[in-house]
Design a protein around this nucleic acid. Sequence first.
DNA 1: AAATAATTATTGTTTTTCAATAATTTCTTT
DNA 2: AAAGAAATTATTGAAAAACAATAATTATTT
Lengths: 71, 71
Amino acid sequence: MAIIVNVDVMLARRKMSSGELAEKVGISPANLSILKTGKAKAVRFTTLSALCKALDCQPGDLLEYQPDDGT
Amino acid sequence: MAIIVNVDVMLARRKMSSGELAEKVGISPANLSILKTGKAKAVRFTTLSALCKALDCQPGDLLEYQPDDGT
DNA sequence: AAATAATTATTGTTTTTCAATAATTTCTTT
DNA sequence: AAAGAAATTATTGAAAAACAATAATTATTT
C-alpha cells in the first residue's frame, strides 16, 4: 500500500482525540478510523479539507507516498 | 474549493506532457485533465500513488490546502 | 473491574472515479 | 494565417468506494 495516512501524528501534536476530530470534520468516528488505519482507498477533497482545517495542517502532513520498492 | 491540485508545476519541473503522464499513470487524458484543472472531488490512492511515482514526488507536492478565508 | 474510547464489521445509499467517445478549444509549428 | 497536435470539456454508463447508521468487539484509561 503506497499511500500512508498519518492522522495520528497530527492528532498527538494537537492533543486531540479521534472522536473530537471526527466531530470537527463531520464524519463518523467509524469512518475516520478507516482513514486513520489505512483502510481507505480514496479521499474526498471535502474530507481532506476538513481534516486540514481541523488539524491546521497541509495534505502533505497527512499523506505520504511510500514506494513499494525500488521500481 | 479548498484543495488545490498542482500537477502542472510538477509536469513543468519534469518536462513531461499531460499525455505522457496520463499514459504513465494509467488513466485517460480526459480524466487526468479533470484532476489537473481542479474539477475532481476525490482521488483514489492508487491514482495518487501512480502520480507520485510517475512524477517522483510526494502528495504534498501535488495537493495543497487553501483555507477559504481566515477561519 | 468498570467505564470510556476506538476499531472493526455489516448493510445500504449516494457520490464519484474512471473508461470510452466525441466535440471543442487551446497551443504549436510551419 | 493555416494546419496539426495536444489538451480540455462534455456526455453516458459502469464499477468502485465514501459515508451514514448501527452494533459488536477490542483497547485504553481511570
